[in-house]
Amino acid sequence: MVICYMVMSFCSISQIPLVSLFLLLTSESLGNDITDALKNKPEWKDVLEFINKTEAKLRSLARKNSGSKVVFQVEHSGIPTIVHAPNIIKFDTILVNKRLGYKADTGTFTCRKSGLYFFGFSSLATRGTKTDVMLMKDGSPKRGIHTDMKGKNAQVAMNNIILYLNKGDEMWVQVTKGSIWCPGRSITFQGFHVPE
């Protein structure tokens, strides 16, 4: 789409008919015959050069970014319904796990590509308790949720962070004080690589 717009803009500036442009843009699907024929037309030289340079740039960008998307979104199924400190929360329902960085059996995300990452997580403290839930990086707390619920009250709390990870760094969510309540997929953990 971007190539079409750029070439159409170039053609309108160069006053090349759009019908001829259509033939040029469909040449890839029709084979090299049309492209070869147009190479012999001097008025198409600049357009062909523009298309070839643009295509080379886009292919280069695609190669650089191929496979760079790291995304995961997981939930706790509710079994067990209560997770006590000092346990790691094992989010066992995987909704998205592109590049397979998250492992449900350990509850950890392992960085496979160094760079900036966004992480978000939630907590639901058990009623009448003081609870701390921490997002951990290689054993060190990076972001926390503190909850002090009175009586029969309950509330979901969320927090997030953007931080730099090196390949091999591990992230997880851990109850460090009190306990959390996990009824039916009510708490989540997610993260993704932030393109620079």
Rank of each mutant, 00 (worst) to 15 (best):
K53M: 05
L25I: 05
L163C: 06
K45R: 14
P42Y: 08
K41N: 12
P80V: 12
K53G: 06
N65C: 11
K39Q: 12
A157K: 09
D132H: 12
V194D: 10
G107I: 03
R63E: 14
L30I: 04
N160G: 06
A157V: 03
S12G: 06
T129F: 10
N166D: 09
W44S: 09
G115P: 00
F119P: 02
M134F: 13
S66E: 13
W172N: 15
N159K: 06
N160K: 05
S77A: 02
V74I: 01
W181C: 04
K103N: 11
A154Q: 15
V133W: 01
A104P: 05
Q174L: 05
G101Y: 04
D36V: 04
K41Q: 14
N159T: 09
M149C: 08
I3S: 15
Y164G: 01
K41S: 08
L163T: 09
S12I: 14
E55W: 14
L124R: 13
C182F: 08
Q73M: 09
A37W: 03
D132E: 11
K113A: 06
F118I: 04
V47K: 03
W44C: 11
K167D: 01
G67I: 02
M1V: 11
N32C: 10
S68Y: 11
A85Y: 10
S29H: 14
D92G: 01
M6Q: 15
K130D: 07
D92E: 01
K45P: 02
S9E: 15
S140Y: 15
W181Q: 04
F118Q: 10
R99Y: 08
L21W: 06
K137N: 05
V83R: 07
D36Y: 08
V7K: 14
A62E: 10
V19F: 11
D46V: 14
T188H: 13
M136A: 04
L48Y: 00
E49I: 14
F121S: 02
P141D: 04
V156H: 12
G115N: 00
R112Y: 11
R112N: 15
A157I: 06
I16M: 07
C4L: 13
L58P: 13
F109I: 02
T26D: 08
T54H: 13
S179W: 01
G101R: 05
V175C: 03
C4E: 14
C11M: 04
C4P: 09
T93M: 05
S66L: 12
S122E: 07
M171Q: 04
K142C: 07
F121R: 03
D105H: 09
M149P: 00
P183D: 04
S60L: 15
L165V: 01
G67H: 04
W44V: 04
P17L: 07
Q15F: 05
A157F: 13
K98S: 12
N166Q: 12
P17H: 08
K45Y: 10
R112E: 10
M171D: 00
L58H: 12
R63S: 13
